[in-house]
Amino acid sequence: MLPVYYSPIRKLWHYGLRIIVGLVLLFLIFPILVTIPLSFNVEPFFTFTEGMLKLDPVAYSTKWYVEFFTDHKWNLALKNSFYFAFMSTILATVLGTVAAVGLASDRMPFKSLITAILISPMIVPLVIIAAGMYFFYSAINIAGSDMAIIFAHAILGIPFVVITVTATLAGFDQSLLRASSSLGANPISTFFNVTFPLIRPGVISGALFAFVTSFDEVVLIIFLADPDQRTIPRQMFSGLREQINPTILAAASLLILISIILLFTIEILRRRSESKGMFQK
């Protein structure tokens, strides 16, 4: 309850703010919530049928999920999505972590220019990246290969790894490294024994970001991928453009589930490292 001495204008401020915030949060979550029940529609439409509104069990069905898991194209897409996401995450995480460690050094020359370059894949519009890669990868004859897709997705994931790892390194005392090397440790064992344990939360959440980035990505796939390299988002994209059916919603609901899992993993990591006072939000 509000204190009784609050003036009307203050009450307005108080309640107004809460109402607005409530509405905005609803706006944010509503589309995601709507997707899930619709994916259980027995009819092949994107709409709530009367039966669904009456909670008639006959109006609900899991057939679109069955379709998703049995249809050859969706299966292929699911496999491709995981495959590309795994491979590109590994590449992005290794390259990005190593670079972030270098970047965090006090002595890094051209620091801001290099940072700007490493972050730039996040800023350049995907269509431009896609067009450039399409021309260039065709010219050097790697278009249509798995490698091309993995590289392309890794490039999109790299900024996230660099950012999260750099953030964990922000509170990192560089003299620890000097101490380690003055004690005779070689740079590699210094990295694994001193640096890595400290930046691990950043590396993991960077990797998760990279994973999600690849998993969700569709523009580069549209431009670069062969028919047998289609991913879930690509399959959804053509479904939305060509033939809308609730299998897309089933796929969407499964993706939401994956995001929820990833979100909680990241949050747990964040909490853990925040309690150590090192990982910035």
């Binding site: 496999k79 495959y83 795994f86 798995d146």
Partner: peptide, 8 residues
């Protein structure tokens, strides 16, 4: 997943 992606 690598193998299957190639096989199909």
């Amino acid at each position: 997943s690598l193998l299957s992606a190639n096989l199909v």
